[in-house]
């Protein structure tokens, strides 16, 4: 009986989440669910509140305790380091690599928590062979795409149950973006669920099973990637 309720319970449930940057309200009553083993995409125009959503889940923005439920536990408003310890890893917008650390040190610090799981340094280098060649270089010496790989690898090193990716494609050439997204299935198969926030709608549709579209801080559309039409998405994205 217990197994049944655990299986039907989503890994992550966001319930009527409001988010504020100081006095400015970025999210209005947003609700979202991610099941274990799923890849979900959150799309929307600039300023729609996508980053605010991920930051609220990760603990960088304050939230009501029951607004974010992870693995059955209310984590809303918990400090970011506590959320990370529970198995949520955020790949921040703009990569957020540590400039004083070289590539390998950036990866190692991702594993600071020492959570058990399939991801370790050799595994990450297997996923991103180009990083192994550059392990001793300062992280800032890498190209944009390689830096994104480091950021992704660093998040994986904490063996998260849920991986949050904020704008992986930002500032990268399309071929590089495709290269990175090609790794996501491997990550899913190792047991980590994924939420990607993307401005690149095409890439998001290819990578995810379900889509949420945010528009000015509210969920304008949600559904299975395969079932949504171009027109529906455009309407929700632009708010026409």
């Amino acid at each position: 009986m217990q197994n049944l309720s655990e299986k039907s319970r989503p890994l992550l449930a966001v319930r009527a989440l409001d988010a504020f940057y100081d006095d400015f309200q970025a999210l209005f009553g947003v609700s979202m669910e991610v099941a274990a083993g799923e890849a979900v995409a959150v799309i929307g125009a600039n300023g729609a509140g996508k980053s605010a959503l991920l930051k609220s889940i990760a603990g960088l923005l304050r939230a009501r305790p029951d607004a974010v439920v992870f693995d059955g536990v209310n984590i809303g408003g918990m400090p970011a380091h506590a959320v990370a310890a529970r198995g949520i890893a955020l790949v921040p917008e703009g990569r957020g690599l540590f400039a004083s650390l070289n590539v390998e040190e950036n990866l190692l610090i991702g594993g600071q928590l020492g959570r058990p799981g399939p991801w370790n340094l050799p595994q990450v280098y297997e996923l991103f062979p180009v990083l192994a060649e550059r392990r001793a270089l300062p992280s800032t010496a890498l190209s944009g795409g390689q830096q994104q790989m480091v950021a992704l690898g660093r998040a994986l090193m904490s063996n998260p149950k849920l991986l949050l990716c904020d704008e992986l494609s930002l500032g990268l050439a399309p071929i590089v973006v495709r290269d990175i997204y090609a790794r996501l299935p491997a990550i899913l198969s190792h047991g980590t669920s994924i939420v990607v926030v993307e401005q690149d709608v095409v890439q998001a549709l290819k990578a995810a099973q379900r889509i949420y579209c945010l528009q000015e801080g509210r969920v304008a559309l949600c559904g299975a990637a395969k079932e949504l039409t171009r027109e529906q998405i455009a309407a929700a994205y632009f708010g026409v």
Binding site: A58, G59, L60, P79, A80, H81, A84, A85, A89, L90, P92, G96, F98, I109, G110, Q112, L113, R154, S158
Partner: peptide, 8 residues
């Protein structure tokens, strides 16, 4: 801020 994401 990002250091917090590492669990620090």
């Amino acid at each position: 801020a990002v250091a917090q994401l590492m669990g620090l």
